[in-house]
Simulated scan of single mutants.
Amino acid sequence: MPGQLLARGVSRHLRGHDFVTVEELVPAPGLRVDVMALGPKGEIWIVECKSSRADFLADAKWQGYLAWCDRFFWAVGPAFPTELLPEGSGLMIADSYDAEILAMGPETKLAPARRKVMIQKFARHAAVRAQAARDPGFVLPFGG
């Protein structure tokens, strides 16, 4: 799973910036972000990992993610044709071990009520994943 390997490198890199991450979080019905990161001051970043041109071209939902974060980034491998990516987006070059932020996504602060909802979703998602890791036979009642 190339996208999951990119997500791992992104998560490792962001941990070095004091961010914690979860993968495959659903901010709203019909959306599932690859990586959501929570910073030390409550900032929320979303990172979409694209492993190929075809993977990028098949994604028509990414603009829906913008309303759920303070900053948005693409994470791609070193051989990815970055000219395909929308201008003004954040950009990370990643592999399975690390990443590098080449461009910061523009900051658009979330409203306080939406930030609270997202931090709660983040916490619940992380807790369900931790419980499932501790108890592999545990059935996730709401799809985790």
Rank of each mutant, 00 (worst) to 15 (best):
M1L: 02
M1I: 06
L5N: 00
A7Q: 03
G9E: 08
V10L: 05
S11D: 10
R15K: 14
G16K: 12
G16A: 10
D18R: 13
D18G: 06
V20W: 08
T21W: 07
V22Q: 14
E24C: 08
L25V: 14
L25I: 14
L25F: 13
V26T: 15
A28P: 00
G30W: 08
G30V: 09
L31R: 00
L31S: 00
V33F: 06
D34A: 04
D34F: 03
M36N: 02
A37I: 04
A37Y: 03
L38E: 10
G39N: 13
P40W: 11
P40T: 10
K41H: 14
G42I: 05
E43W: 06
E43N: 04
I44D: 11
W45E: 01
W45F: 12
I46T: 14
I46H: 06
I46C: 06
K50W: 03
K50F: 11
S51P: 00
S52F: 09
F56N: 10
A58S: 15
K61Q: 14
G64C: 07
Y65G: 07
Y65H: 12
L66S: 10
F72I: 15
F73Q: 01
V76G: 11
G77N: 15
F80G: 01
T82K: 08
T82Q: 13
T82L: 01
L84M: 11
P86R: 04
P86V: 07
G88C: 07
M92F: 12
M92S: 11
I93H: 08
A94H: 01
D98P: 05
I101T: 15
L102S: 07
M104I: 04
G105C: 07
P106L: 05
P106M: 06
E107C: 06
T108V: 13
T108M: 02
K109H: 10
P112H: 03
P112F: 04
A113C: 02
A113N: 03
A113G: 00
R114C: 00
K116M: 13
K116A: 15
V117G: 05
I119C: 05
K121P: 10
F122M: 10
A126T: 09
A126Y: 09
R129S: 10
A132F: 09
P136V: 09
P136E: 09
F138I: 02
L140V: 00
P141N: 04
F142T: 15
G143V: 03
